[in-house]
Amino acid sequence: MTLERFIQLWTHRYKKYSHIFTAQLLGYKAILHFRSIKVNLRKGQKLVAIVRTEHFGDIIASEPISRYVRSLHPDAHIVWFVKPAYQSLVAFNPSVDEVFTEFCVTQRQVIFEAKIFDDVIELQFRNNNHCPVCDVYYENPVAQSRSINVDNYFNFGNLLEVFAQSGNLIPAKTIFPADDQPRLYLQDVHREKVDALQLHKRYVVLHCRSNFAPKDWPTERWEQLVDWLAENYDYDIIEIGQESNLHVTTKAYRNLCGPLSILETAEVIRRASFFIGLDSGPSHLGNATGTFGVILMGSLNDFPHYNPYSGKYGRQENAIFVRKHGVPCRELSFEFVQDKVEQVLSRGFEIA
């Protein structure tokens, strides 16, 4: 073994085991916290955990579950486990008493093995329950018993239904039994940030890049769409997301990728006349904020024709899905997408 390889090996081991030590230490600290919470609960009052730590579209899709759990346990102290990056999505939810920002799966494993919680509602399955540093998986026995996994989950319904089944809230392959419209709880601070952007003119929001390449539509076709929209409609065109890869010169276009938080982005979408985007997190923001959506979708892995949304997007009451059965999103022609967008804009679906 070379010296360089020896250093790499022990650097990796140091990072891994120091991470595990930190996770376990934080887990024991959290146990003390939750024990203090439980001691102060009234007799018969439950301590309930809801686990949906990622990704932000999935957390938004899961929001109706918080209200459903509250209806089942009106007096419970409900704790939502989430990754720090998505804490704001749950922080203002009136159905949740406490948001626990999780360090990693190992920390959560330590906490739940202490059996403090009266009920653990696990909305995830194996692929979301993995820490790559610890190399630890936390299994969901309900999802395992129902054979729900990353390869087949859309065979069990939309995301809300899949997560509710994984959490043992509803029987296998059944519809969600309560209000299934996702909600967001935007605050004045988010409205004020968007006020400062001075988005006075009517505008259309675009989201052009997902975090999973098979869901994407080619960049050059997005650029064609921007130019066509600018030439034919009196709307500003605002792109949101983490990073833009568009190269357009029209004055109607504005790039807001990057500087906004998730909830600030939601407020931008809420004020838009239309949302045009991919099957990705921002489309769930569109569903939750009530802005009419034009969603470019294609076949995905083993799912030739799937629907991730509940509520008005899921029923296509406030959205249309631009897709062809069994055809990946990247293969949708510009003309096909253009025609669907034109139909929507000419019929005037925008929300006043």
Rank of each mutant, 00 (worst) to 15 (best):
M1Y: 11
F6N: 09
T11P: 06
Y17I: 06
I20K: 12
F21R: 14
Y28K: 13
K29G: 08
K29N: 12
A30R: 04
R35T: 09
R35H: 10
L41Q: 01
R42E: 15
I50W: 00
E54P: 05
H55K: 13
E63P: 00
R67I: 08
H77S: 04
V79N: 01
V82F: 02
K83L: 13
P84E: 04
A85Y: 12
Y86F: 15
Q87T: 13
S88G: 06
V90F: 08
S95D: 15
Q109C: 10
K115W: 06
I116Y: 04
F117S: 01
D118Y: 10
F125S: 03
N128P: 05
H130M: 11
C134P: 08
V142I: 15
A143I: 00
A143C: 00
I148P: 00
N149D: 15
D151H: 15
D151M: 11
N158E: 01
L169G: 01
A172Q: 10
I175D: 12
D180E: 14
L186G: 03
D188I: 09
R191D: 04
V194F: 00
R202M: 05
V205I: 05
S210C: 06
S210R: 07
A213V: 15
K215M: 11
D216T: 09
W217N: 02
L225F: 10
V226L: 11
W228F: 08
N232W: 06
Y235H: 13
I240H: 10
E243Q: 14
S244I: 09
T249R: 10
T250F: 03
K251F: 10
A252E: 12
C257H: 03
S261C: 03
L263K: 03
E267F: 02
A272C: 02
F274D: 05
L278T: 08
L278W: 12
S280V: 09
L285K: 02
N287V: 07
G290I: 04
F292Q: 00
G293K: 03
N301C: 08
P304A: 08
Y309R: 10
Y309L: 10
G311L: 07
Y313V: 12
Y313Q: 07
A319R: 09
I320H: 08
V322A: 05
G326K: 11
L332Y: 07
S333W: 03
F334W: 03
E335C: 07
D339Y: 11
K340S: 13
Q343K: 15
R347S: 15
